[in-house]
Design a protein around this nucleic acid. Structure first.
Length: 403
RNA sequence: GUGAGAUUAGCUCAGUUGGUUAGAGCACUGGUUUGUGGUGCCGGGGGUCGCGGGUUCGAGUCCCGUAUCUCACCCCA
């Protein structure tokens, strides 16, 4: 027997129906916000992710499905969606076209991780990216849009926001933080020692409780923002307040991917285990330039679909369905014709073998049908159908032409 | 990459200190005497006990390895 690869799942009904439902709601909301669907390749050059996501991140360091293809290209399966969208944006010279461009995407992402609840090796994201607006208004609108999607699906969440500074204020802060860390050298955990060298601000979201105790006294990024970062963060908060969006400021919220600056946010669920981030995003004003395009401000977010599907509280709408059965083989052609008419409006289930009425009713019940449609000798002669409503037990005969 | 627990029928699980042809419930399937379903009754199919080694007269049960699943660390959506 051949099994699927570790951490790669088949999605059957009803999970698959929830997936479709999510995509359709998210697509509807995204288009109301001016976003258009963009499909980008699943496979990209490895260097794209090294340059965008960042070589200091675990994603690039040890989680990529990377290999050499038959043309000796160093390629990898995308571990996230933003890099590909930005690449496409630049490649098609939309960075030179000016104006505002908004895209949404959804599909498989791949990370070679140890599977656990809410974490798979092939997982799915719905993401949005907005290019061309450098404003807290666009950041806030991105957040509002995610709220709309979650609210429409009755998904509960809490929202955390933070500002992770920009190229003006980050270097000075980083220096302060490193100085602080040097003093704590012997107390912080092994991982944090590594982070100190690689990507110091990542120590802030260390899960080690001892480390967290120490970092309570660490210099806070929010206290050391430059004026423009600070103004923008204040503006973001007031826009969210104006729109009655509840949020908490999490000074230790840091994005895992190197390309983010300024606004960072995360939607958290308390209901899905340790992997509790259902969506995350923020500003990445320097990424276009960094990937060889014209400087273009941008903001984006991604939703983890597997994590979110568990939280959809709305039930699937029950649909009326029909069961068709014949009592003798001569009636079957007529049965097929009748089913063909009904298939235009409802799911139909046909039993091709002639059976007794009793057996058909039993089958219809098992198939969870709302109506049982039977053709026997009598019906065939009169060109009628015998129909029983299985819920209220009413039954009647109708002409096949009026069916 | 690290740790803990699991793996027996399609599903949920029993299976005694190693001992005859490995069980149950649900699901599936046929019948219940020929045009009225759900609950009843009778029958049937389905397991190389995750895989590979080892110990033993004998292994679902003990030992080793391995794969996968679950959860957590880590990481992140």
């Amino acid at each position: 027997m051949i099994n699927s690869l570790r951490g790669m799942n088949d999605m059957f009904y009803p999970d698959s129906a929830l997936y479709e439902q999510f995509i359709s709601v998210a697509t509807k909301v995204a288009s109301r916000y001016g976003y258009r669907f963009l499909q980008t390749p699943t496979l990209e050059q490895t260097s794209l992710f090294k340059r965008s996501v960042g070589e200091s991140s675990d994603i690039v360091n040890k989680e990529m499905y990377q290999f050499t293809d038959k043309g000796s290209n160093d390629v990898c399966l995308r571990p996230e969606g933003t890099a590909g969208v930005v690449r496409a944006f630049i490649q098609h010279k939309l960075d030179r076209a000016g104006g505002v461009h908004r895209y949404f995407y959804h599909g498989s992402m791949f990370r070679y991780e140890r599977p656990q609840k809410g974490r798979l090796r092939e997982f799915h994201q719905f993401g949005i990216e907005s290019f061309g607006i450098e404003s807290a208004y666009e950041d806030a609108t991105t957040i509002l849009m995610l709220c709309d999607i979650f609210n429409e699906l009755a998904i509960e969440y809490t929202l955390s926001i933070n500002s992770i500074a920009d190229e003006n204020c980050m270097p000075a802060y980083k220096k302060m933080l490193i100085e602080f860390l040097e003093l704590q050298n012997d107390k912080i955990c092994e991982d944090c020692c590594k982070r100190k060298k690689l990507n110091p601000i990542r120590v802030l979201d260390c899960k080690n409780s001892n480390c967290q105790l120490i970092y309570k006294d660490a210099p806070k990024l929010l206290d050391h923002l430059c004026d423009s970062c600070n103004n923008e963060f204040e503006q973001l908060k007031s826009i969210l307040d104006d729109n009655s969006i509840e949020y908490k400021i999490d000074t230790h919220l840091v994005r895992g991917l190197d390309y983010y600056n300024r606004t960072a946010f995360e939607f958290i669920s308390g209901d899905i285990g340790a992997q509790n981030a259902i969506a995350g995003g923020g500003r990445y004003d320097k990424l276009c330039e960094h990937l060889g395009g014209r400087a273009t401000p941008a903001v984006g977010a991604a939703i983890g679909l597997e994590r979110v599907l568990e939280l959809i509280k709305l039930g699937l709408e029950p649909t009326q369905s029909y069961y068709f059965g014949a009592m003798d083989s001569e009636s079957i052609p007529m049965l097929i014709r009748a089913a063909r008419i009904k298939r235009a409006v409802a799911p139909c289930n046909i039993e091709y073998r002639p059976r007794s009425l009793k057996a058909h009713l039993k089958n219809a019940d098992k198939a969870n049908a709302s109506y049982c449609v039977i053709i026997g000798e009598d019906e065939r002669k009169d060109a009628k159908l015998w129909i029983k409503n299985l819920q209220d037990n009413t039954q009647n005969r109708v002409d096949i032409d009026k069916f």
